[in-house]
Amino acid sequence: MEDATAVVRRFNRAYTQRIGALEESFLGLGLPLGTARLLFEIGSGPTTTQKLRARLGLDSGYLSRLLRRLEDDRLIAVKPDPQDRRRRCVGVTEAGRRRWRELEERSEERSEERSEDRARRLVEPLSARPRARLAAALAEADLLVRAATVTFAAVDPAGPVAQAAVGRYFAEIGRRFGFDASGEPEKDAADLARPRGILLVACDDGEPVACGGVRAIADGVGEVKRMWVDDAWRGAGLGSRLLLEIEAAARALGHRSARLDTNGALVEAIALYERCGYRRTARYNDSPWATHFFEKALDPADG
């Protein structure tokens, strides 16, 4: 862990410098990138410091420093919320509105061009082979960072997010095994809803990239269902993370063991289950599609 952390920190220092994230004048506006980004959020509509922290993932101290700079430049005003004095409302001043418009105009005109030019200058000194290595390494790093930071959320199994995710699961099953999966996503919706079960979905840029759930099939026994990871996200450890999240949800529902079924053709899935401690067991259902059955004890100490 320490070695990986050191590598990430070293990369962050070098990369942020080279892509211009540390420049004091983003798009020539006299504001560094972080401050300009905050102004853009505030100028998009009145908000609160609490909402800004959540939306941008900033800690209170750093956000306070950025807000102070914008206040000192008379671009924003921070005032107590008249309906709740514990909250602070944030809005742009007239000067801030003008700067916001300028930021938006310059972003539209120059951001893509500047970004492409900077990327081109970054790779120009490299010959073809190192350039290809860099592209492959950055693609891998991008996938791993996104996989490490994506979060799983419980969703309504009958809702649009769940149906989109489970629909992709069945689309893949249909492609691999040659059957019509229309109508399948709705089948287990009731069983995957609380209190009988739960369905977890991970999204990236609004699109589902993984899903999985658990439903009760006997006293203290939960069945893992609809476990799916998008093809483009495989190999980044997302499947293992998802299975751990499902197991934690199963424990929270009071299950002492987890079962699942799969097909022998899904060798990657079988390898994942075995790595995660699942052991083969006797057939426990009459699914004509399933050929392999697994079970794992859910030790409360692991939750």
Rank of each mutant, 00 (worst) to 15 (best):
residue 21 A to R: 09
residue 264 G to M: 11
residue 205 D to L: 06
residue 9 R to G: 04
residue 269 A to N: 05
residue 258 A to K: 01
residue 161 V to F: 06
residue 241 R to F: 07
residue 277 G to A: 06
residue 54 A to S: 10
residue 160 P to C: 01
residue 114 R to V: 09
residue 8 V to R: 10
residue 67 L to C: 12
residue 124 E to V: 11
residue 193 A to M: 00
residue 277 G to L: 06
residue 293 F to K: 02
residue 67 L to M: 12
residue 87 R to A: 14
residue 61 G to L: 09
residue 99 R to S: 05
residue 206 G to A: 02
residue 198 I to E: 13
residue 50 Q to H: 13
residue 5 T to M: 12
residue 213 G to E: 02
residue 6 A to Q: 11
residue 124 E to F: 14
residue 112 E to K: 13
residue 78 V to C: 09
residue 115 S to L: 13
residue 148 A to V: 01
residue 119 A to Q: 06
residue 258 A to T: 03
residue 244 L to M: 11
residue 2 E to M: 13
residue 242 L to N: 04
residue 169 Y to K: 13
residue 294 F to H: 03
residue 254 G to P: 02
residue 69 R to C: 07
residue 227 M to F: 11
residue 131 R to N: 07
residue 208 P to M: 06
residue 94 E to C: 00
residue 235 G to D: 09
residue 162 A to L: 04
residue 237 G to A: 01
residue 179 F to R: 07
residue 281 T to N: 06
residue 224 V to L: 13
residue 100 W to I: 01
residue 202 A to C: 08
residue 40 F to Q: 14
residue 303 G to K: 00
residue 224 V to E: 03
residue 91 G to T: 11
residue 216 A to Q: 12
residue 209 V to K: 10
residue 122 L to T: 04
residue 3 D to Q: 14
residue 291 T to S: 14
residue 217 I to V: 14
residue 17 Q to S: 12
residue 85 R to A: 13
residue 272 L to F: 09
residue 103 L to S: 11
residue 60 S to Y: 08
residue 225 K to L: 00
residue 16 T to H: 08
residue 252 A to W: 00
residue 148 A to C: 02
residue 27 L to K: 06
residue 89 C to Y: 03
residue 104 E to I: 02
residue 241 R to D: 03
residue 21 A to T: 06
residue 144 L to M: 07
residue 268 E to S: 10
residue 188 D to N: 08
residue 118 R to V: 10
residue 225 K to G: 01
residue 24 E to D: 15
residue 283 R to D: 03
residue 150 V to P: 00
residue 231 D to E: 13
residue 35 T to N: 12
residue 218 A to N: 09
residue 20 G to R: 05
residue 209 V to G: 09
residue 113 E to I: 10
residue 71 E to C: 10
residue 209 V to D: 11
residue 177 F to R: 12
residue 162 A to S: 02
residue 75 L to K: 08
residue 230 D to Y: 08
residue 97 R to A: 12
residue 286 D to N: 12
residue 120 R to V: 05
residue 291 T to I: 08
residue 71 E to K: 10
residue 132 A to E: 14
residue 10 R to C: 06
residue 1 M to C: 08
residue 278 Y to C: 04
residue 294 F to N: 09
residue 233 W to I: 00
residue 49 T to Q: 12
residue 295 E to H: 05
residue 15 Y to R: 04
residue 295 E to L: 04
residue 77 A to L: 08
residue 200 L to K: 03
residue 221 V to Y: 08
residue 107 S to P: 00
